[in-house]
Nucleic acid binder design. Sequence first.
DNA 1: ATGGCCCGTAGAACGGGA
Length: 270
Amino acid sequence: MSPDDGLSLCTWNVNSLKVRFEQLKSLLVSQCWDVVCLQETKMTDDRFPYEALRELGYQAFHCGQPTYNGVAVLARLDRFETMALIHDHLPNREDPQQRFLAVRLDTLAVACAYVPNGQTVDSDKYRYKLQWLDNLIAYLKEQRFSEQDFALLGDFNIAPQDCDVHDPALWHEQVLCSSEERRRFAKLLELGFSDAYRVLKPATVQYTWWDYRQLAFQKNRGLRIDHVLLSQSLMQKLNACEIHRQARKAEKASDHAPVSVYIARPKLHQ
DNA sequence: ATGGCCCGTAGAACGGGA
C-alpha cells in the first residue's frame, strides 16, 4: 500500500520508552504509520526524544511524569499540515497521573488513553479505574467526538469479551475482565464508536498482551486489552486492523504488541 | 507452591504492571 492510499494509525504500550526507543525507531521506519499513540513512556517531558523523532519525520506531543504512566501522540510531518493539542488530561477530573492526550491533526481528532490497570477488583485502584473510565466516557460525549473523524487508541486494560481471554474461567470476574469494566467498554461503543479489530475479525482469537512470566507468550496465554475505537465516519473507510505479534518476540520486548488500523484517507484538507 | 518477569528508582529491595 503506498502512503497516498490511506491513513494508518497505531497504538503501543512501550513499557518504558527509554528501553524501547530503538524498537520504536525500527517500527516507524518499517511501518511508516501516520499516527502513533504510545503509553507507559515512564519519563518526564524533558527526556522525551522530540529531536530524534523529528529526524525520523515525526512531530509529537507528550505528557509524562517520573517512573509511571506517560502518553504520547506522534504524527508524520509530511502527512498533516497542522498538529494541535486538544487536551493533555481529562478536563473533568483532577489527576496527577498522566494517562490521556487528545490532539487534532488537520480535521482528524486522535485521543491516546492509558486506562488504569485496577490491580484487583477489591482495591482502591479498581475504583479509581472505574471512575477514570466514567470520566473518559463523559468527556468523549461532551466533545461530540462521535460526530467527527475521531480515533481513540490505547491500552484500555479491558478484555471486552471472553474470546479476548486465553482462559476465561481463570479470569472470570478478575480485573481486566470484570463485568463492571466490560460495561464501561460497552458504554464507549454505545457512544457511537466501534472496536475496529472485532468488527473486522468477529471470530478471530488474538491477543495484544502476554505476561512476562511463565512463558506466557510462548504458550500464547494472553489477553486482548489494547484497542482502536473509531467513529462511524472512519469505520466506513476502515480497511484493516493488525496486531503486530512479531514485536513481542524481540529481545527486550514490551509485554504489549502494537495494534494498527488502516483507513482510506479522509478529506483532511478542506 | 499464590510467585515466577520486567521496569524505574534505587544503589537494596520494592511498588507497579496485568
